[in-house]
Design a protein around this nucleic acid. Structure first.
Lengths: 137, 137
DNA sequence: CTTGACGTTTACGTTAACGTCAACTTATGC
DNA sequence: GCATAAGTTGACGTTAACGTAAACGTCAAG
């Protein structure tokens, strides 16, 4: 198989800039075993895979997951095999995670419709102010 | 207008039990101005409206919002009027909140489909273990 | 009337997720 | 070749969101 790797790599500052986070944050994630970049001497060199993992981390953050959960998720992602018991545990974790996500979906739907409601009231209020401005406050 | 209030009320312990949180948490939310229960003497008495607000708080938490944001949201909810500038600010906040929620929806969709993927791989792996068990490890 | 069960305030402790130096090494442009 | 920009490892600080414990009030039941 001809793997046409373009072996793209990134510096820590490049990633920080791209995702609008600090280098401190990226190193912190490494401390927490969310990332494991290569090293050229002392310096960290991030592959495209590392960049993808970082994106996964940030997505987890946007969904409100704690870093520990995110780490588990990521490790599930690149751990295809294992013993039978391990696999069953993983499947179970996926199940509960999925339930959490579905719950979040419901919550979002509710919140969105309530926002519609609030916004409508705001706009109604606004236009009534507009009118009373015209007709003399 | 005949307001047929059933004036249901709850104790702090009842709410804590119902929502599986501690009384400490509920009092903490009050400190942060997320709740303002009535008092019978010293004791807190929660109305059905208070209970609804608490539910809103917990929904916000599930969506990963910080308590400060949740408080803003709640206050927007029961503040229909205000000055023109205030109203415009509110509408703008709603807009950005809505964008955040839509982003979360995308994230959830992605995460769910990746979970499908991981689970499939797990199950494939499981059944191949099953087979090698039958055919003699 | 006292013993729990439940409630209150006050205050300090804890954990997660970084921020903010400091002190130092390594690359890079001119 | 030298400033300066970028990177490194500690180490301590900070904020949010509660936990935990102390010290005390109150009220119904035995």
């Amino acid at each position: 198989m001809n793997q046409s790797n373009q072996d793209i790599s990134y510096s820590i500052a490049e990633l920080a800039k791209e995702f609008d986070i600090t280098t401190r944050t990226i190193r912190f994630y490494e401390d927490k075993h969310l990332l494991k970049p290569a090293r050229r001497g002392q310096q960290r060199v991030y592959s495209r895979a590392d960049r993808t993992r970082l994106k996964l981390v940030l997505r987890g953050k946007r969904l409100g997951w704690p870093l520990d959960d995110i780490r588990e998720m990521i490790h599930m992602y690149d751990a295809p095999g294992g013993e039978e018991k391990q696999l069953r545990v993983m499947i179970d974790k996926i199940k509960t995670s999925r339930e959490t996500l579905l719950r979040q979906q419901e919550d979002i739907t509710l919140a969105l419709s309530e926002f519609d409601d609030i916004q409508l009231r705001c706009e109604t209020q606004l236009s009534s102010l507009q009118i009373s401005n015209l007709t003399g406050t």
